[in-house]
């Protein structure tokens, strides 16, 4: 099972800033191991962020994103105590969802 994300969300003057640290190998499929065999691709393909039940960000990820990706974004609205949910899905069909309350 995938490791948890680290999510921080803070509202200020009607704008909520969300910072997400994801735990993922983000293997490109281009690299080879010490015996010369290709390491299979394994990377996040899609990320969805929701404010309560409303989608505020939908992002396509690819193999050019680094290991353990960091993502920061802002959306209009949001207040202390609201729920922010972040989910990702990778090319192997694995997924992970974590949520935090806006601080």
């Amino acid at each position: 099972m995938a490791n948890p994300m680290r999510i921080r969300a803070a509202a200020k003057e009607g704008v909520t800033e969300v910072r997400v640290l994801m735990s993922h190998v983000m293997e490109t499929g281009q690299r080879k191991d010490s015996s010369g065999a290709a390491i299979p691709a394994h990377f996040i393909t899609e990320l969805v962020a929701k404010h309560n039940d409303k989608v505020v960000l939908n992002a396509q990820f690819g193999p050019s994103v680094s290991t353990n990706p960091y993502l920061a974004f802002k959306f209009n609205g949001g207040a202390k105590g609201d729920k922010v949910t972040v989910s990702w899905t990778d090319n192997k069909g694995e997924s992970r969802t974590d949520e935090v309350q806006v601080a």
């Binding site: 490791n3 948890p4 680290r6 910072r19 640290l21 735990s23 290991t67 353990n68 960091y70 920061a72």
Partner: peptide, 14 residues
Amino acid sequence: MLADGNPAELFEME
């Protein structure tokens, strides 16, 4: 630039 999103935090959580 990285200080804000230092992936070491993932290990801290673990």
